[in-house]
């Protein structure tokens, strides 16, 4: 992989390998990400991009290779795992808000349990975050009472409440009705400018092109392209990437 060496990377993945039974999901994937970088991860379905993202907080265990997050190696040591998950937030395609808890409680739960923040402090912070995503007056509702776009914005606030150094987005707009995609992208755009490290698996090529500093193209479990949005969208090196772009370009 011709990844340029990056000064003090916050995420280092070296030769990561992952199989699901006979399916080879990740083949020898290596990539480093520096602090504050916003990376869009694109590629056809089943190419391994979501799997790669999920190995970074060990929702999927990698079978081979090495993953180091903020100096901590992800391995079988539960202490390492705990430390990494504290620093890495995740936003899911299907939001996964805790359905039995209010919006406020969804956001305060992890800071209170994991960071041992006091209830008052956690709630004040949660309300501030809700304001940031434009949902301050929804604090006492339950997730089911919110629209998809609102739920996803709450999910982003929930992840931010842990003050993560890295935010992973796993197709955050794919489960949304088209008219709700923008409200979520707006929040993500604002986040991208705030200096947090973001890795975004997405099909939103407009977002990737406009907001990302870097685009990674996955195909059949390996990284095929790792370049700037400019280069990727105007002149991709590989035929697979060209074909993929031709397919998704129909949209716009």
């Amino acid at each position: 992989m011709d990844t340029p060496t990056i000064p003090n990377p916050i995420i280092v993945a070296r030769n990561v390998d992952k199989r699901f039974g006979s399916f080879h999901a990740l083949r020898n994937v290596s990539a480093s990400f520096s602090e504050g970088q916003v990376t869009a991860i694109v590629g056809p379905s089943g190419s391994g991009k979501s799997t790669f993202l999920r190995t970074l907080n060990r929702l999927e265990k990698h079978d081979g290779g090495q993953i180091i997050i903020d100096g901590i190696e992800l391995d079988d040591d539960p202490k390492h795992l705990c430390a990494v998950r504290r620093e890495v937030g995740m936003v899911f395609q299907s939001f996964n808000l805790f359905s039995h808890l209010t919006i406020l409680r969804n956001i305060t739960l992890a800071p209170m349990r994991v960071r041992k923040t006091s209830k008052e402090e956690a709630e004040a912070k949660a309300l501030a975050l809700l304001e940031r995503v434009g949902l301050k007056n929804q604090a006492l509702k339950y997730p089911v009472q919110l629209s998809g776009g609102q739920q996803q914005r709450v999910a982003i606030a929930r992840a931010l409440a842990m003050d993560p150094k890295v935010l992973l987005f796993d197709e955050p707009t794919s489960a949304l009705d088209p008219e709700m995609v923008n409200e979520v992208l707006t929040v993500m755009r604002e986040l991208a400018h705030s200096g947090i490290t973001m890795l975004v698996v997405t099909h939103e090529m407009g977002f990737a092109r406009e907001v990302a500093d870097r685009v990674i193209f996955f195909d059949e479990g390996s990284i095929l392209e790792d370049t700037t949005p400019q280069a990727f969208f105007t002149n991709p090196d590989h035929e697979r990437a060209q074909a993929f772009l031709a397919q998704v370009r129909h949209g716009f």
Binding site: C82, V88, L97, F98, S99, H100, R158, M162
Partner: peptide, 27 residues
């Protein structure tokens, strides 16, 4: 209990015990 609920709890750094008591058991 939908697996996504458990993944979300684990991703937030909740321990397996906390995940069980706060998320899995009530749901």
């Amino acid at each position: 209990v939908p697996p996504g609920q458990i993944e979300a709890a684990r991703a937030l750094g909740l321990s397996p015990f906390e995940t069980f008591m706060d998320i899995i058991l009530p749901q």
